[in-house]
Write a protein that binds this DNA or RNA. Structure first.
Length: 118
RNA sequence: GGAGGUGGACGGAGGAUCGCCGGUGGGCAGCAACCGCUCACGGGAGGAAAGUCCGGGCUCCGCAGGGCAGGGAGGUUGCUAACGGCGACCCGGGGUGACCCGAGGGAAAGCGCCACAGAAACGACACCGCCGAUGGCCGGUGAUCCGGCCGGCCCGAGAGGACCGGCCGGGGAGGCACAGGUAAGGGUGAAAUCGUGGGGUAAGAGCCCACGCACGACAGCCGGGUGACCGGCGGUGGGGCAAGCCCCUCCUGGAGCAAGCUCGAAUAGGGACGUCGAUUCGGGUGGCCCGCCCGAGGCCUUCGGGCCCGACGUCCGGGUGAGAGUGCUCGAGCGGCGCAGCAAUGCGUCGCCUAGAGGAAUGAUCCUCACCGGCCCGAGGGAAACCGAGGGUCGGGACAGAACCCGGCUUACAGUCCACCUCCGGCA
RNA sequence: CGGGGUGUAGCUCAGUGGCCAGAGCCUGAUCUUUGGGGGAUCAGCGUCGUGGGUUCGAAUCCCACCACCCCGA
C-alpha cells in the first residue's frame, strides 16, 4: 500500500481525493446508493481504487449566491477531512446540498452528514 | 441647533489551535529530477470582485473593385487607448436656495397617426353663421312687412299653436341669398394660425395703428463667443407626434481565454500542391450559350481563377483515445510631491510590487479591545420635566467572492467619518 | 462566455397607444330540483413584475432593474 493512502491523521485534502470529472459524477449518480436528509443528499458508490475515499460536491444555485455556496462546500469538506475515518473505505461520495443548507451552522452540517453516513 | 445639497474616505483591529491555495528556501527517499512526503518563512478577494449594459487591450479568422443592406451614436466643446463614460459650457424643466433632471439634430423631403368631443385635427377646404358692396332674380303694374276674413293641412288629450293658398285693407322701397365675399363668432378639446383697445369695411380679417405676449423659421443686418448660443435692430405669423416609418451627420469586419499557441502513438480514409503519363479534358460545341465550385464569413454585382483519368512525392486539417503544458499576471498599475489647466486630465519625478485557482482557495472553536442598539445602576446639573460623565449586562455587524486584463456605467449595502455649501431659528 | 424568451384576475391565457383591460375555469348568492349533480341569471376577483421617461393619454413605445425559464460553446 502506498504511504499516501496509509495516512489518516492529516486533515489535508488532495486533488486525487476529490471527484473532478463529470464522468465520475455520472457514474456515482447512476450506480450509487442514496440517502437523503433535510438539507443534504449523499450518494455513495464503489470507487476506482480500494482504500481511497473520494468526495464530490454538488451545490446548485438553488442553495444561495456564490458566497453561500462556497461556505456550504467548505463546511462539508471540513466535515469530510475530519470524519472520513468513519466512512467505509474505497467509496466515492457525492454530497448534494438542498435549499436550506446555507442557513445551517458548521456543527449542524456535520451532525446531519454523520447521521446520513450510518 | 434643526432641515437639506454636493464631493470624498472607510467597510472593524489584535491574537490562539486545527485546516485550505499558490510562492521561496531547506530536509527525506532516490542514479537523478521542477514529481511525492515533510519543515520553516513571508503572501492570499471588492467598493462594488456583482449585473454583463458599453468601450478598449490581447488572440485567431477574414480583408480584388463597386453598390446595397444591417447595427450604433445624436446640444456644443474639451479629455481619453476608446466609449453610449467624464469635465466645462449652452438651451429647456424643477426647487425659496445650495443644487438636481433632460435620447437635447430635422415636422416648408415624403408617408403615417391624432380616440372621445367638436363645424373642422391640417385642407384654412367644406358646414352653421355674417354680408351680399359687385353680378343675378323679384319689386311704384305696389314687393318684403302689418291687420282682418275664408279654405286646406299638420302638431296637441284639450286650450291653443305652426304652415300653405285666395281675397280685402294699411303702408310706401326695398326684398331674396343664386353666384360671390368673409374667417369676427360656433357649447368641444391635450391641442383650433396670438391678446386688448382703436381705426377700417357691405360684412370682415395683423388689413392698418398703439401697447403687450409668444415661440419658430430665414438666404436679413450689427455686436460678442472656438462653438452650441446670447444681446440689439428689422421682418414674418407657423398645430403636434420622429422613445411611428423616415431624412441628415458621424461611427462600424467577425468571433471570443472553452480565444489561441506548444507537445503526443498507430491504422485506414479525406483534402491541397507539385511532377510525369495518356490526352486537350464541366455540358451542348464552328462562333456562341448554359451550369457548378473558389476568391467570398451579411447580400448583390463586376472581375479573375478552376472543372477529366491514372501513378509517384510532399504537406495539411478532422474524429477516437487521453490529456498535459502555456496563455496567467508588471499593468492605459498603485501611492506621495511638483507643474499646466476652472475641471475632466496630462506631464515630470521619487517610492512600491499587490491573489493567480481550475468540480475552483478564508472554514471550525474561542479570547481581548473598539463601534452600534436595548435594559439596569449612576458622579453631577436643574424649580421640575429632563439631560447625563462613567460602569454592568444582553444582543448586533451589511451587500457580497477574482476566473485573461483594464476604463466606465448600473444595481445592492449594517454602521460611520471628513470637507465645502444652502435654507430656517436662536444668541452675541 | 454568448444568445433568446416569459411576467396581465386564485389558475390557463387573449389584448391595434384611447370606450369601465377581456375570455374560460374558479368563488359566492339567487332561481330551477324532494336533495345532489347539471343548467340559468347576477356578482366577486387586477399596484397589467418594479422604477423612471416619451406622449394630451402607456398593459402597449423607450431606458434601467428584478424574478423565472430555455438554447449554444
Amino acid at each position: 500500500m502506498p504511504d499516501h493512502l496509509s495516512r489518516t491523521g492529516s486533515e489535508r485534502l488532495r486533488r486525487r481525493e476529490r471527484l473532478r470529472s463529470s464522468k465520475d459524477f455520472r457514474r456515482v449518480n447512476r450506480t450509487g446508493r442514496r440517502s437523503s436528509g433535510r438539507h443534504f443528499v449523499i450518494v455513495s458508490a464503489k470507487g476506482r481504487e480500494p482504500g481511497l475515499t473520494r468526495l464530490g460536491l454538488a451545490v446548485s444555485r438553488r442553495v444561495g449566491n456564490a458566497v453561500q455556496r462556497n461556505r456550504v462546500k467548505r463546511r462539508v469538506r471540513s466535515w469530510f477531512r475530519r470524519e472520513r475515518g468513519n466512512v467505509p473505505e474505497g467509496l466515492d461520495l457525492v454530497v448534494i446540498a438542498r435549499r436550506g443548507a446555507a442557513d445551517r451552522s458548521g456543527s449542524e452540517v456535520a451532525a446531519e452528514l454523520r447521521g446520513l453516513v450510518e
